[in-house]
Structure formats: C-alpha cells, structure tokens
Design a protein around this nucleic acid. Structure first.
Length: 261
DNA sequence: ATGGTCGTGTGACGA
C-alpha cells in the first residue's frame, strides 16, 4: 500500500515550512507539487530529505509554473511533456519501483475570458488539454496515476454555484468537454469521486474572498486519477480542507489517495 | 459589473 498526495503549493520556496508540516503530519509516500515557481536547482530539498523524502523529479522555471514529485520511494523520471509547446514547466512523470507511473500536471489556468478569439490564454488551455488527450490516446497508459491542478471543476457539485460559474473559466462546458476527452482517451478513473461519489468537494478557495471558510466559494480544481486497471486498488481519498487555514497558506489544499499496489 | 488577494521580484503579470 502507498499513499499519494497532490498540492498546488504556490511557491515551494516561500512555503517550504508548510510542505515540511504536511510531510510530518500526514507522511504520504509520494507528494506531487504544482506551481513551485522555482528553477529545479533552487527547490529547497534538504528539509524534505531529512524526513525521508530522498527522491525528487521536477521541472522548473524562474517565477512561474513548475512541478515536482517528492518521494520516499525511488523514482525513475520517464517524461516531461510541454503540451501545446508553451515552453512552460507543467508536467513531469516518474515510475515507482512497483512499476506504477505517476503523472504530475499543472494545466494552464486560462485567463479570465472564456473565448479563444478574445483571450489567447483560454485557447492555450484548450490546446493543452487536446494535446494531453492525443498523448494518452497514443500511449494507452496502464498502471498509471495522474494528479495535479487541472484548473477545471467538472461536476456541478465541484463548485459552490454551478449556474453562476457556467461562464467562469474553470467550469465552462467547453472546458469540461476537453477534460472528459482527456479522461476517456487514457481510460482514467476519477479516484476522488470513486471514493466520495456524493456531495460538494472543493480543493481551492480564492485569496480574494474575504472569508474563505464562511463564504465557502470553492472549486475542485485538483484531481487524482488512476487508469482503470488499477482504479479498484484505490481507496481512502481525502481533501485536507483545514490546510487552507494554515498561516500564509496556499489557495489550494492537498488531495490524498491510497493504493493497494 | 467590478473588485477583491496573493507571489515574483520591483514593475507588471499571472493566478
């Protein structure tokens, strides 16, 4: 059995202490981070290694984006795709000793206007998802897990108000179509919703909301998927809402799942 | 309809 977590950390250097706290309190075997906002060589690894996280694969760039997989178990880096050729550090993949491949993804946010003719970033987001779809259609992943900040809340109960968010980037029908096309192409199963099929689930609350907890205007942007061949081994999914209230916290909280593999 | 808050790195830009 191993436990895995995904967390958009919004600067791994500013929040090194919060990563250490999560590793100490929850001790996942693998932690996937997004928005590290750091070149790989400047990621502060020492404190993570001191807790047993001796292995890391990462893609980084100065100031923006960046993904990293921290692990107690050895990792073999197997890919780092630049979907849509944006030149961004948004994907890295690694294989665990048991053969399971973990994809860590940070899908572009897509800007504010949900129209690619008015907003180039929205088009890039859709193109990014289309290239992900094509990649998984061609590679037919098996014994694989995909996690990350996918920047889309696909279900009505993944947002605080479905009707109000239908024209808001992250919950528009065209984004959900693209999201579902990626899932279908790789035969991915939504592990979080397999474990917690009913009720509202959020993993992100905006910094701009004056009282995130009482207002609770959240969205489920962070996901854990597994290919169908191993999805039945997944269990114990959790979204760690209290982490949003940690001092100088990220706007995202960690999402956990365990696998009997 | 608008503005609200962060992080990076010092002026906007991205989220």
């Amino acid at each position: 059995m191993f436990t895995l977590a995904t967390w958009n950390i919004n600067s791994v250097r500013l929040r090194e202490g919060l990563v250490i706290r999560l590793l100490q309190e929850e001790a996942p075997d693998v932690l996937c981070l997004q928005e590290c906002k750091s070149p790989v060589e400047l990621i502060p690894r020492e404190g993570f290694a001191a807790l047993g996280y001796h292995h890391m694969v990462a893609r980084g760039q100065k100031g923006y984006n960046g993904v990293a997989i921290l692990s107690k178990l050895p990792l073999e880096e197997v890919a780092g795709h630049d979907f849509a050729s944006l030149g961004h550090a948004r994907h890295v993949a690694a294989r665990l000793p048991n053969g399971v491949v973990i994809h860590n993804c940070y899908v572009p946010a897509g800007g504010d206007i949900p129209d690619r003719t008015q907003n180039e970033k929205f088009g890039q987001k859709l193109d990014y998802l289309t290239e992900m779809r094509d990649h998984f259609r061609d590679s037919l992943p098996q014994r694989s897990i995909l996690v990350g900040d996918l920047n889309i809340a696909p279900r009505e109960d993944d947002v605080w108000n479905h009707k109000q968010l239908l024209k808001i980037v992250s919950h528009t029908p065209i984004e959900v179509e693209h999201f579902n096309a990626v899932m279908e192409a790789g035969d991915w199963v939504d592990v979080t919703r397999q474990d917690i099929p009913e009720g509202r689930l959020y993993s992100w609350w905006s910094y701009r909301s004056p009282d995130w907890d009482a207002g609770d205007k959240g969205r489920r942007l962070d996901h854990v998927w597994a290919t169908k061949d191993i999805a039945a081994s997944a269990h114990g999914s959790r979204i760690l809402r209290p982490v949003r209230g940690w001092e100088q916290g990220s706007d995202h909280v960690p999402v956990f799942a365990s696998f009997d593999l």
